[in-house]
Design a protein around this nucleic acid. Sequence first.
DNA 1: ACTGTCGTGGGTAACGTTGCCCAAATGTTT
DNA 2: AAACATTTGGGCAACGTTACCCACGACAGT
Lengths: 346, 346
Amino acid sequence: MTRPVQQRRVTIVDVARHAQVSTTAVSKVLRNAYGTSPAMRDKVHQAIADLGYRPSAAARGLRGQTYTLGVMVPDIANPFFPEVLNGVTNRLNDSDYQVLLAPGCAGEKAEAKTIDSMIDRSMDGIILIAPVSPRAHLEHVAGIVPTVIVGRHARSTIFDTVADDDIAGAALVVDHLVSLGHRRIAHIEHLETEPSCIEEMPNMVRAEGYRLAMRRHGLEDQIDIVSTTYTQAGGYTGARELLDRPRRPTAIFAGADIAAMGALEAISQAGLSVPDDISVAGYDNTTFAAFSQVSLTSVDQAGWQIGADAARLLVERIAHRERRSSQIKLSPTLVVRGTTGPPPAR
Amino acid sequence: MTRPVQQRRVTIVDVARHAQVSTTAVSKVLRNAYGTSPAMRDKVHQAIADLGYRPSAAARGLRGQTYTLGVMVPDIANPFFPEVLNGVTNRLNDSDYQVLLAPGCAGEKAEAKTIDSMIDRSMDGIILIAPVSPRAHLEHVAGIVPTVIVGRHARSTIFDTVADDDIAGAALVVDHLVSLGHRRIAHIEHLETEPSCIEEMPNMVRAEGYRLAMRRHGLEDQIDIVSTTYTQAGGYTGARELLDRPRRPTAIFAGADIAAMGALEAISQAGLSVPDDISVAGYDNTTFAAFSQVSLTSVDQAGWQIGADAARLLVERIAHRERRSSQIKLSPTLVVRGTTGPPPAR
DNA sequence: ACTGTCGTGGGTAACGTTGCCCAAATGTTT
DNA sequence: AAACATTTGGGCAACGTTACCCACGACAGT
């Protein structure tokens, strides 16, 4: 029996009247501010419970805080991001903050629109995961609202960053493949069309890490990179291209698991077997990689930890806007599975 | 060169002054309301552009609309939901609405908290994907804010629903397996702990569809259901249990792809091969199922379409609160792939 | 008894936007 | 020419909350 009548919202005034105190008093209790006696707190809490009062975020937003944190994810379909997100929400579970996700921001323009909409909603802070906006724009945003950037290898005085050490991650893969005896190790990278912030993006750092590691092993002349995107389709076309080489590589290092998926598909369609004919490694160690039918060797970058750290930094920055900015860099680990093995005997 | 000074927000008053009109006039132009001349519109738009004005969602919320729609997803890690979400966002792409996602709501209590927080933020409408709250609570919510429920087989006068025809979907799988010659077809279901709304949930409807189809084929005595959850771990333990049966089934129909993943893993660990020893089918046709290494036979329930329909209904309901409610039921299709085949010769 | 200090509690004015009303100017019908 | 409708624009009061002040009594130290 739900009432069909649209009842008026219970406000702080109703609570105050019911508890026989002033609205100021109620507000103080709500924010557990200074100047409230235990007796008054009890009265107010009782009234809140009686009336089922809930503060209006809109009204709060107009005055300052909204107790809302925004997270921007570039692509929810990529299973790595849910992990980061879980880290974020878990860390904030028993705080007063509510996390809201702004989905689907492919490209710089859509990203700017999304960020603007979070600012419009006066969120208390935002976490941007692998944003593609130019550095200057990010600093501008961070000047307006406390911001934590995840995945960009940038350093700024006004925003904090959390990132995986992608140079080290790429090196782990190359080292592993070299130790198995591979020399012709190719890389599938994600290439942005926007050139603005290119060297800060994780994908570019991974490619650079690949180059550095190859040189370190004296394999400079074997460096072979195809530029596509971190998507299944991108991995597929990238691998196709590599398989068509006169001397095809014996191992493919895809910059993301999702691209590795596409590569595996292309390889299987070409009638080749993994890892006997060709080895494949990915990056992100998504749940997909762990699945035994796939068993993809991959770099684990602790998405959960990244998310948790980002949430912690954001809360700290909200509390102390002028605190020094910090950069957290997490060390990845390699998870060796079935898609990598010694190269074919030739 | 970002200004370090924290400049005051540009408000409608600033725009009005700059355009030499009243704030009311600006407000009217913003909402393209009645009573604005083309000349005034131009002046105001120019001023908005000059000053880079953006309306404050908080202030708007206090007065009524926020141009924000909330979507609750039970589990972002399940790759089916991103598809629904894409349908939603795509449909709303060039509307004035911004979609925000409330993540991670396992269980009735967390769900209630999430829904409350969306109401607190005075969202204009909400889409609840596969909510577990009791029917009465959903109706209560729908009385406060326009609501579309996705996935529940419920009928209400105040909220709209979009759902897949799960009875038909389950039948597709059973029919397919029977036509291949299977008789011992088992089902892995997701069983809620909360008994309140059980018969409305898609998982229960799928199980019921399985039962009906089995009976229709005269296989009533072969009905075999294990109750776990729609997770990888749930599928794994469910399959383990089925494999331990004295006479193990020749086919397993998992109620969700993600559970089918776990089942495949258990089967492979048991040293059995798919589909020669045992067939497996899933539900949702996630991108994962399409992947050639997995090649999972699955029921496609057009997540994109579901999301798009939900978004359309929500926008319509916001425009006409008192409109009759509608229930959209979409017909699933079966995608046959490599994990189903004839039963072993015995 | 006189000044401070502390612990309580309340009054009030914003915050930025929009819905409702009214006023003036313009156009249209008798 | 008078009466009436329509268009165009503005004034004002909310919406619900909180930051900033001030007032009152109790109590301590001179």
